[in-house]
């Protein structure tokens, strides 16, 4: 599918908010993602990104530039055509109880939880990072969240897992590095744990079995078609 890049903002060093025209009108649900065919010639595969926001005519992502693919996507000029596939991933169709759900993101994991959040209401949200690089992003995206950082002189110093006690919740929705998802697992054993997973993907559409995570019964789930939302308490993170 062809889309046009309509807007590009670098809201922090190497963190881009990209907005594209939306040509494909299939309904989009929380947890779904899109994949972009980029023009870096040395790497071949599409790059997957959570769908951050969408309207009838627009679709946007929050992208952190970390390598060749994201670099070449960050260089796309406004008005250019982009080949992308969406919506991908299993739609999450449930309504979560806002009062009892805690949303946790590590770094660019912000993009993974954003679509679950009903922005009209107060939410329990913790955003954590290493070095303060997501503070402004968090401010821009959420009117109310607990922002914490491992370093830097922020009000709250520490990891997201140090702050869970401040909230009452029976469900947690989390996206971020594997170490974070793993650390959360140890603390939320008796709660519902929806992990929004990210694995390196080849196809993103279920053709190759390249993107799996292992469950506790030694079977694999494909992140792209069984997920990205998977049972965080059952995943073996290693």
């Amino acid at each position: 599918m062809r889309s046009i890049l309509l807007d590009k903002q670098e809201i922090e060093d190497n963190i881009f908010l990209l907005t594209f025209s939306r040509e494909e009108k299939s309904e989009i649900y929380p947890g779904q993602f899109l994949s972009i065919l980029h023009k870096s010639r040395e790497k071949l595969l599409r790059r997957p990104f959570s769908i951050l926001m969408h309207t009838e005519n627009k679709i946007s992502i929050l992208m952190k530039k970390i390598g060749r693919g994201t670099e070449s996507i960050s260089e796309i000029s406004l008005g250019s055509e982009v080949d992308m596939l969406y919506p991908l991933g299993k739609p999450f169709k449930e309504n979560l109880d806002n009062e009892k759900t805690l949303f946790v993101a590590g770094g660019i994991g912000i993009a993974g939880i954003y679509s679950f959040i009903d922005r009209g209401r107060n939410q329990n949200i913790i955003i954590g990072d290493r070095d303060g690089e997501f503070e402004r992003v968090a401010e821009k995206l959420f009117k109310d969240c607990l922002y914490v950082s491992e370093r830097g002189d922020t009000r709250r110093k520490g990891r997201v897992t140090d702050f869970l006690d401040m909230f009452e919740f029976n469900t947690i929705v989390a996206c971020g590095p594997k170490q974070m998802l793993n650390a959360l697992k140890k603390q939320v054993q008796n709660k519902r744990y929806l992990a929004v997973c990210e694995e390196i993907m080849a196809c993103g559409v279920g053709l190759c079995n390249g993107c799996v995570v292992k469950y506790d019964d030694n079977t694999f789930r494909r992140v792209c078609t069984d997920g990205p939302v998977l049972d965080g308490n059952r995943i073996v993170y290693e």
Binding site: R41, E42, T219
Partner: peptide, 23 residues
């Protein structure tokens, strides 16, 4: 066959290494 452990995919210059393991 349950297939191989992750990682199963890695991009190389102009190519792709896979180790899916016939899952």
């Amino acid at each position: 066959k349950i297939g191989n452990e992750m990682p199963r995919i890695m991009e190389t210059y102009g190519g792709l290494l896979n180790s899916i393991g016939l899952e």
